[in-house]
Write a protein that binds this DNA or RNA. Structure first.
Lengths: 206, 206
DNA sequence: CATAAAATCCCTCAAAAGCGGGATGCAGCA
DNA sequence: TGCTGCATCCCGCTTTTGAGGGATTTTATG
């Protein structure tokens, strides 16, 4: 019995690349692809693949959210996240939302096959590069987790507001904003606001 | 005589996708691919394609720079930029550096063929989506152009250095750094440093 | 209900950024 | 030769931040 495979990715070249790579493989049945989260969900209503390769960047909603929806509706489907290298900060979120693995888009056919095989056995698969970056960046230890308020303050800082302006916007005192700011600097290990924004952008927090 | 094609992209799936799409086409000869700027330049020493598809994000250096080098060394090679949709701010730079066209990674084979055909005739080709985004975002009017010094200062600001630290690093006075900082704020229409870094990141300047 | 985490607020003081000027030297160019 | 853009440097003054604290109230959660 062949393993059925479905792909969600809005980049046609990537879809075509995987199809081409998988065509040569025994035991893999390509049952289709979608370029949006909506059309993916529509397809799944009629048929579910064993393994679902899912890009993190989709035009209508993020793969993170789609992953959660899919796993809620069809827990038996194994989801493998797919993205380019600079989006590794999403890996943890993806796994938190039920994904079984993570592939970088420079993976070759053997790595894809290995990923499919691993997740079909109920284990987790990470691209070697992904895994190493996770280790390097300390993501495995959980990337700095910001509270709701801290995220709000961070967002407004990045928009160029000062503490007092942020205070007005959030109906709190400037001192409080300052405290949040200090905590942000500490959590993200930033020397000052400029570095804070840079690091936050690098971690896709903005 | 078939048109020779070479690809630089660090995502194997994309390379494979294009190869698969092009294999079915008449008159296209795939002469190879590279995953880094360095290996691309090495290949070009021995052989030059008619058309060079080039990803903008490469591991060792940006496609923007590579494009300029390639066009300097081999002006007869037509370069077509390749990237995903959120990197459109690079399109103008790519074209400035001598690229003849721009394809988004969700292009299908007909669009790729059309692009190759168009640039081989010496004309410019933009993906419809790319063209529309260029119009929308006013990129065609040219995004703010920074001087060499301003770029250096911007980089160091984003790393969290203060004016005096930057001054030490660049062997200039803190006052000068301050002037560059003022000019950066003005050019990028930023209210303060935080917004400056955010905007710079949005424009892929960092 | 106890406890921890989050959110709130306050203080001081030094350092840095931001604002609004002005000014000089130098290179490329019409 | 005069113009323009770039890079360099300086002044005074205000605002904002960053680095130390300390403290209280809310809100989850076992």
């Amino acid at each position: 019995m062949a393993i059925t495979l479905f792909i969600v990715d809005d980049h046609y070249m990537v879809v075509e690349g995987i199809r081409s790579l998988m065509q040569a493989e025994q035991g893999i049945e390509w049952i289709g692809h979608a370029s949006t989260a909506a059309s993916c969900l529509a397809f799944l209503q009629s048929r579910q693949p064993d393994v679902l390769l899912m890009d993190i960047n989709l035009p209508d909603q993020s793969g993170i959210d789609l992953c959660q929806q899919v796993k809620t509706l069809y827990p038996q489907v194994f989801v493998i996240g797919l993205s380019t290298f600079n989006q590794v900060s999403f890996i943890q979120k993806m796994l938190d939302n039920g994904a079984s693995g993570y592939l970088l888009k420079n993976a070759g056919s053997s790595e894809i096959m290995q990923a499919i095989d691993t997740v079909m056995h109920g284990r987790q698969f990470l691209s070697i590069e992904a895994a190493s970056v996770v280790r390097q960046s300390g993501l495995a230890a959980g990337q700095p987790v910001l509270t709701r308020r801290e995220k709000e303050v961070l967002q407004l800082i990045a928009e160029g507001l000062t503490n007092t302006e942020i205070a007005d916007r959030l109906y709190i005192s400037a001192s409080t904003v300052d405290t949040h700011r200090k905590n942000l600097l500490q959590k993200l290990q930033a020397k000052n606001t400029a570095a804070l924004v840079k690091i936050a952008m690098d971690h896709q927090m903005l």
